[in-house]
Simulated scan of single mutants.
Amino acid sequence: MADPDLPSLVRRRLLELNITAEQASRLSHWAVAPETIEHLAAGRRSGLVSDRLADALARALGVPENRVRRAAGLPEVPDPRESIETTPQLRLIKGGGSSG
């Protein structure tokens, strides 16, 4: 699913992960400053998103880099994980309390 723009992606992921901009910055190993994340979320950052920022922001938000690149209007990069097929691995068990 393509995101309409970068600010909405940043806001939504911070909300989904229930983290602050500072915590997201920590997840990227401080490669992107908390202030930059806040400005992106608010739509106040001007200028283009660089390749380096797209990679760091993807780590901060816990999403594939191409998701950030699409939202920022950048060309996608080859992703070796793209060819991995996944299937649901969880089973729902009625009453799902502790076992034993």
Rank of each mutant, 00 (worst) to 15 (best):
E76L: 00
A58K: 12
S25E: 11
Q89K: 15
A56G: 09
G47E: 09
H39Q: 12
L53P: 06
E65L: 03
R12I: 14
R44W: 12
P80C: 02
P4Q: 08
P7N: 06
A2R: 09
H39E: 08
V49Y: 00
T87R: 09
H39T: 11
L74I: 10
A21K: 03
P64M: 06
A33N: 14
S8K: 13
S8Q: 13
R69K: 13
E76S: 00
L57K: 01
A54M: 08
R67F: 04
P78C: 01
E22W: 01
H39W: 03
M1P: 03
P7V: 10
E85G: 07
G43M: 04
L74C: 08
A56I: 05
T87A: 13
A21L: 03
G62P: 07
A54T: 04
E38R: 09
T86N: 09
D51T: 02
T20Y: 06
R59L: 15
A41G: 07
P64A: 06
Q23A: 04
T87W: 02
V77T: 08
K94C: 06
R12N: 14
A58E: 15
V68L: 08
V68D: 11
L40T: 03
T20P: 06
P80G: 01
A71M: 11
A72S: 08
D5A: 13
R67E: 12
R52C: 00
E38Q: 07
I84Y: 02
D55T: 10
H29W: 04
G47D: 11
L53D: 10
L17Y: 00
L53K: 13
V10R: 01
A21V: 03
E85K: 14
L9K: 02
P80A: 02
N18K: 10
A42E: 11
P34S: 04
P75V: 02
D79V: 01
I37S: 02
N18S: 13
P88N: 11
K94Y: 07
A2S: 14
E85C: 08
P64W: 04
W30R: 00
T36S: 15
A72Y: 06
E38G: 04
G73H: 15
S25V: 08
D5N: 15
V32W: 01
L48C: 14
S28K: 00
R67T: 15
V63W: 03
M1Q: 05
A33E: 15
R67A: 13
G96V: 09
A72M: 11
L92D: 14
A71G: 03
S83N: 05
A71Q: 05
